[in-house]
Design a protein around this nucleic acid. Structure first.
Lengths: 340, 340
DNA sequence: TCCTGGCACTCGACTGTAACGAGTGCCAGT
DNA sequence: ACTGGCACTCGTTACAGTCGAGTGCCAGGA
């Protein structure tokens, strides 16, 4: 069971070579490209052990070795240091994110940036409503029986929803409703609003009661139940790099998975505080993504986390590089959000 | 030069067979599957003429014939009747679109519906701001020197933008600004706002002048210059149907094109009144999309057109079916918008 | 004049065989 | 414990041969 230092070095070398060449790597090529200080025969023995332990495998009898998911896992956990970003990359990040005027703008720029830097598919979750607080709720009369409800969150997210009122409501009443709602809900965390909304209805003056009831329903629907998470995606064209070798020849399942917001949210949304999560191959729960890996992390202003972002690519990806990039981008985005 | 009726029938048969089988079609198979009333030899002679005229071609000397872009064009223009939708499809459309609460909701449902019905990539443009009118402009104070500007258009679109003010502005002033702006801009077509915004600045009371100037800049930026068109996309996984035969083996250029909003807008956004546009293969202006066809049309409440929608797929697609579906969906969406 | 059956021809797809070589496992020797 | 050597495996490539779908052309007939 013992994996001595050299065996680990061999594994590392295999991963690095395979990631960069995309071809099974043999013992001879290994000793040539890395200074292992031993002969190919020795490496072969080490390889036999690594294979027995499930870290690498042979696609065909007469081919070199390829890391398994388990091998990548070991590599990520113990054999790689996070690559520092190049100054060029740092500059690219700053240049890209400076000048964003809008939350939408920030998210779009971020996702494109990530895709470009990592050359993978990038995914960015908008700040989660569940983790946001209400900054302001606005009621805009559209007609006598219709209101547009606009919610502005502290994270910069803006949600709107058309509300059909049970009957005509005069402008003054709208003003009153707006005041009541804001008094009660402003600065409340969205996850804590349900009882407050309930109270709003109960405490509403009789005249406003029916309207307030309708509004309350819509509020709960929009802000909590259908807790509308949004996602931005970019770089799908990067899936076609590496020919058809990655993803065993069919992009189909991957593209299907990428169309499901629910899937993406599970992948990058469930982030524990401030760790970078790496899901390798079949470690993730979706069959469609058995051939893919995901590197994700949370971001947010300061120490709090309001959303997730990450990249998805073939298991054969540059983990250290991608981890570094994802982290760096998340940090910059966090700073950007903190400024607002 | 004369293409008599039988030659056209042969072309139609070739297109139909090729679209459904995805394989080059030969003279013998043709006479078997269609009642042309002549022998394979005759069909071969017709084919020779059709090939000479550039409507079909042979992938290899010993293979059957395949329609060229020009052949599809002739087929679409003169040889096909628009398929009526099946009742099942009609029902699917209604069921899908009923219950949409929101413009966002409508657009998302529409794009998924289109992708599902046509089994192609679907694209839906949000109602264009350029073709919308202002319904209401709201100013929401975020802090003493920051406002959130929210514009609600008659098409249901809502745009927001954070505004940094030159200095602190008291709440009463915000109220005044809101009133001034709405008096001037409400119901104006967005394309006609620039002079109105200019007037706003000139007519503003001296005290509000600096703030109004800032607001005017942002208004013009947000609403006109960077005339923010939005796009929704779905069904990219459908590109992988038909193996790697369509798109000559590489999805890359297609996926790249689909990531560019500008490209998509050109494809589906430039719609002349109420026609359905069909772009076949290299008829479209983007090199990346030489192997693809686009069927698109405009939609809007009543007779006016506020945006475009359509589908993109291999040149080998079911044009009559897709044209019918795109039109039908556009009409339903128009009705839906008209209700708001 | 137009259609048809017949026939020779082309050429890609498929099959089988052989040579090649990258890579391995094992073993005896240091 | 490492190394050089060697036999072996097996995928890749090249080449030759066969098969057959599909064609173009032509002479004969309606």
């Amino acid at each position: 069971m013992g994996l001595d230092d050299r065996k680990l070095a061999v594994l590392r070398a295999i991963v690095e070579d395979y990631v960069s060449t995309q071809e099974p790597v043999g013992s001879k090529a290994l000793v040539e490209r890395h200074q292992l200080g031993v002969s190919p025969a020795t490496v072969r023995n080490d390889m036999a052990v690594l294979e027995e332990e499930g870290y690498i495998r042979q696609p065909h009898t007469s081919a070199g070795r390829v890391p398994t998911d388990r091998g990548y896992r070991l590599f990520v956990d113990r054999l790689s240091r996070v690559k520092p970003l190049s100054p060029a990359e740092r500059r690219a990040i700053e240049r890209f994110l400076v000048g964003a005027v809008d939350l939408d703008d920030v998210v779009h720029r971020t996702v494109r940036l990530l895709a470009q830097l990592t050359r993978q598919v990038a995914v960015v979750q908008y700040p989660s409503l569940a983790r946001s607080s209400v900054r302001h709720l606005e009621l805009v009369p559209i007609s006598t029986t219709r209101l547009m409800l606009v919610m502005i969150a502290d994270t910069g997210r803006v949600e709107q929803r058309l509300v059909e009122l049970p009957g005509p409501v005069p402008a003054d009443d709208v003003t009153d409703l707006r005041r009541l709602i804001n008094e009660k809900l402003a600065n409340a965390r969205l996850s804590e609003t349900p009882p407050l909304v309930q109270a709003l209805v109960e405490e509403a003056p009789t005249g406003l009661r029916p309207t307030m009831t309708t509004l309350a329903t819509v509020l709960l629907e929009t802000l909590v139940e259908r807790h509308e998470e949004r996602i931005a995606l970019a770089g799908t064209a990067n899936l076609t790099r590496g020919g058809l070798l990655d993803f065993q020849g069919s992009l189909r399942p991957i593209l299907e998975a990428l169309e499901e917001e629910v899937v993406l949210l599970k992948l990058i949304g469930e982030t524990e505080p401030s760790t970078t999560r790496v899901l390798i191959g079949d470690e993730n729960e979706f069959d469609n993504l058995r051939a893919a890996s995901v590197v994700s992390t949370g971001y947010g202003p300061g120490a709090t986390i309001v959303g997730g972002l990450g990249v998805l690519g073939p298991t054969r990806m540059d983990y250290p590089g991608n981890i570094a990039t994802v982290r760096a981008v998340a940090r910059y985005v966090g700073e950007l959000l903190a400024q607002n």
